[in-house]
Write a protein that binds this DNA or RNA. Structure first.
Lengths: 349, 349
DNA sequence: CTGTTAGCGCTTTCAA
DNA sequence: TTGAAAGCGCTAACAG
């Protein structure tokens, strides 16, 4: 119940001054060895712990970085966070995680709060595709003392770095794979294409169709929120078409699962009647009872680590003038599983 | 790039003193309306933002609470966190999330870090079943100015509140259900029973067997880490027994999934040959292709909300002497699904 | 209703 | 090698 001991307490105890204690504790070279050891020993005895808040106020740095994501309850984001932590913990940073639940207001709020608790940087995957139009956001970005790094869901802002995968390639490769399976009428369950990542997946899909001389049909592209139930609804629409698709490429595993359920519920076979491919390699795609789901590996841990590395580079740049943003793009990996592996057609590599 | 504006800047601008500015900004009643409005207006114009770190140093409160969990990438914990956030955000608190990845050291580290950044409270689900034996932990707990609240994985420490579900009842109900299905040789995939929650699930299981006049066989209880692969391994052991079980009650959905995979891989039928029941109502238990998994709803969001409420009560108690710990116990709900619903036996309610 | 002053705990420049 | 003093930004007790 007694108050925490401060450097003053231990200074008094030793009849020296607080600055000496501070220096001793920080291994300042210009301190006598004896004094240093004495101080450190008594500090230990008195259960001294440095008050990080005072330090933060003094130095303007907190050794905390903030991470903002739409949500943490999916494997992709929690893996990215894992990567960030792995990279930053050894450097003495602490990671503060915030969720937006896809609410624009909460997102800006979170940025505010993090800045207020003086984080040394913010790594985020945006929830509002038009964040750059948000006034408060811009105000915050204007005096960009604090490094901001986007991952996955990014927007292009001059001077702000990002880490993403090559979503175009992911879309292209997946579509090409479905075409290789003999599919000719491939639908795409997209998402809000104001987000670059969804736009690029869509463009990759489209390009693959064109390159293979297949017809691109706008009716086969449905914007679908990344939820199982929405996947079911959109798929229902697709299956009700006069000529339903023979494959579905979804930009979300959750949506792919919804598609899966809807197709099964109609007595159709996967992959024989319709092939399915998702996105993100969520664990359940691997856990399916019979029909595991083809998907894209986005290397989330890697992504987190690199985002953290970019932060570490930027946080040390004093001359902000010559700070140039850096856009790292990882290569996705197509993971082919049963939902798109027709038994009678060999899988092309 | 210019420095952030402080109350001194706006004081100078207005030729008044900083304390007046502070009061005006905080809607202190003893300030003239005109002054208040003037200050607030100029504050807005000058893009003033309160420095929370200074506030924290001054007041010793940060308006942050820390949440420590083993991991965030499962539905249970992320839902609890969701509940905590829902309760605390409206009160102006910010939630800092830390993961231990089940590492004892990281757990104590996290507590340290959180205390250092002066969180106003810590809500946690422990990773180290013998946390109370940890010296640093005890040191931290001794001067318990900061409320600490356990949820789910708790330990009994005098003066520390907790929120859990009635794990004994959950174990009992599940086992009783399996017995109602006609199962006579029910195995239990347990977990480290130094944790109260696993011990209680086990005890509930055991009691149900006894109450129904069934034989309790220690060989049918295997301690299994909460991972899919471990579930497979343990199940393999069970199936290799001379008389294998006709039902498996797992204290983890992930382990139940492993059991599921192993059973299927041996060509056995669920639920006809073996019934399965898991724990936690992870989404995938509902998403299974044919055989959805019976499980226990732990009402995680509710749990989070209540933990947050307990915190709010405790944080306002000035007289720490009469602080009495509170142990809230929620009632679990058995969710019966196909993995334990034998077609020929009506489900008893 | 407003100003003065002190202090939260720490680091750091300047002196000694 | 150590001490003295100032200051990070804010609030609050006291005085007026």
């Amino acid at each position: 119940m007694r108050k925490k001991t401060t450097i003053y307490d231990i200074a008094k105890e030793l009849n020296i001054t607080a600055s000496t204690v501070s220096r001793a504790l920080n291994d300042n070279p210009k301190i006598r060895k004896a004094t240093r050891e004495l101080v450190q020993r008594t500090a230990l005895e008195m259960n001294y712990e440095q008050n990080k808040v005072a330090l933060a106020l003094k130095s303007g740095k907190s050794n905390n970085v903030g991470v903002i994501v739409p949500r943490i309850d999916n494997n992709f984001f929690s893996s990215v966070i894992r990567g960030i932590e792995e990279e930053l913990y050894p450097k003495g940073y602490h990671v503060i995680i915030c969720q937006t639940h896809d609410l624009d207001d909460l997102e800006v709020n979170n940025i505010h709060s993090l800045l207020n608790v003086q984080v040394d940087g913010i790594l985020m995957s945006i929830s509002n595709a038009e964040l750059e139009k948000n006034e408060s956001f811009n105000k915050l970005i204007k005096n960009k003392k604090t490094p901001l790094i986007f991952f996955d869901r990014k927007i292009d802002i001059d001077g702000i770095s990002s880490v993403t995968i090559d979503d175009f390639k992911a879309g292209y490769d997946t579509t090409q794979h479905l075409i290789n399976q003999g599919c000719k009428r491939i639908a795409h369950l997209s998402n809000n294409r104001l987000f670059e990542i969804y736009k690029n997946r869509y463009l990759g899909y489209k390009q693959a169709l064109i390159d293979n001389g297949l017809n691109f049909d706008e009716d086969l592209v449905i914007e679908t929120e990344s939820k199982v139930i929405e996947g079911r609804k959109s798929t229902s629409l697709l299956l009700d078409l006069e000529i339903p698709p023979d494959a579905i490429f979804s930009s979300s595993d959750f949506v792919a699962l919804g598609a899966f359920q809807e197709i099964k519920s109609r007595g159709l076979k996967i992959p024989e009647d319709i092939c399915i491919a998702g996105f993100s390699n969520e664990p359940f795609t691997r856990f399916m009872e019979f029909t595991t789901i083809t998907t894209i590996n986005q290397f989330p841990i890697e992504m987190g680590r690199i985002a953290a590395q970019v932060f570490l580079e930027e946080v040390n740049i004093t001359n902000v003038k010559n700070k140039k943003n850096k856009n790292v793009v990882l290569t996705p990996e197509l993971i082919i599983r049963k939902s798109s592996s027709k038994p009678f057609i060999p899988i092309k590599s």
